[in-house]
Design a protein around this nucleic acid. Structure first.
Lengths: 187, 187
DNA sequence: GTCTATATCGCGATAGAC
DNA sequence: GTCTATCGCGATATAGAC
């Protein structure tokens, strides 16, 4: 057995989420978090690059998932079809069924400017992953960048609408509706 | 008369930009900046909310400009026409002729994650200003949000392309070309 | 203007897993 | 032995309170 209870990272995450919920993000200090987790301040920064990172542990996972989905799709699949299918998979595996949890997280992020900026970086990372995926598939640079940004935009707006409402539409339905609205707007 | 040469804010900004260029953003401390400007650390934070803000002094101005342009346009102007004209004005008054300066700024922002996040917030602020403008003009909420985001996306991608190349196209031309590409992509 | 809290990170030591 | 997680101490910068 280890001298220290294992999985310190997860204990730190749990403690941090509890404290953020109890007293807010800004009012919670790293020493408070580590005290609750039974660790030291220094240890916190070995696991997380900064205090905000606790709320964005899955940031990289989405980009990796996007990269994998795009790499695995047959070369013949057209860009917009790939986007449609990819967003459906993303919606079903990472969003559907988590509405309450995601709402709570959104409310917390809304309380702090630093968290909002970090959230924007997450969106940018997704756009970048899509751009890279299309470049790898042989799409030219400006088309790839445009597809990445539009895809990230449509997804984030759709998530907002989906979280705002209580109607039983799935996120994927909202995404398709957003694309339709966009087409109508530009056309 | 003041005991100190006036316009401390501008001296701070100059000193900061020099030091950022000489040694990088992260390696430059606020005490260093204020020492060069002949002021105290406290004075720096009276003028700027944080170290990054030095590079984003015009952040609010663009949002205000967007709000004004949208409020002044006749009610009969269609959304996409308003966007087209608004982006043209923005491109001509705030970007055209500043390519070298904007390139240097972009290179600096690229060196620091914190600066990139702040840059993303600037983009988000613009999208939000456009969204609010359309809401005021009576457009429904989801259309307004979509128009704001798409507009911000097209502008930022166009700026990137315009800064990347040395060709003599104006930013406004690149913006229109980006809209055309987007239409083709979705259609 | 001064003072202070807090975030962040570098370094060397230590404990246990393998 | 090596590798990794942790500790304890301390330094510095940012940022805000007073």
């Amino acid at each position: 057995m280890s001298r220290w209870p294992s999985d310190g990272r997860e204990r730190l995450r749990q403690a941090a989420l509890e404290l953020f919920a109890e007293q807010g993000f800004a009012a919670t200090t790293v020493p408070e978090i580590t005290a609750r987790a039974g660790l030291t301040t220094r240890t916190f920064f070995r696991h997380f690059p900064d205090k905000r990172a606790v709320l964005f542990v899955d940031e990289d996972e989405i980009s990796e998932m996007v990269a994998r989905l795009m790499a695995e799709a047959p070369a013949a699949v057209e860009p917009m079809a790939l986007i449609r299918d990819g967003l459906r998979v993303l919606a079903e595996t990472r969003f559907e069924g988590r509405r309450p949890e995601l709402r709570a997280r959104r409310a917390l992020v809304a309380t702090d400017a630093g968290l909002q900026e970090r959230d924007l970086r997450k969106r940018a990372a997704m756009a970048e992953a899509i751009r890279t995926g299309f470049l790898t598939r042989g799409i030219d640079a400006s088309r790839a960048a445009l597809l990445g940004e539009v895809c990230a935009t449509v997804l984030s707006l759709s998530i907002e609408e989906w979280l705002d409402s209580d109607d039983p539409r799935t996120l994927d339905h909202v995404v398709q509706a957003t694309f339709d609205t966009l087409r109508a707007e530009l056309g």
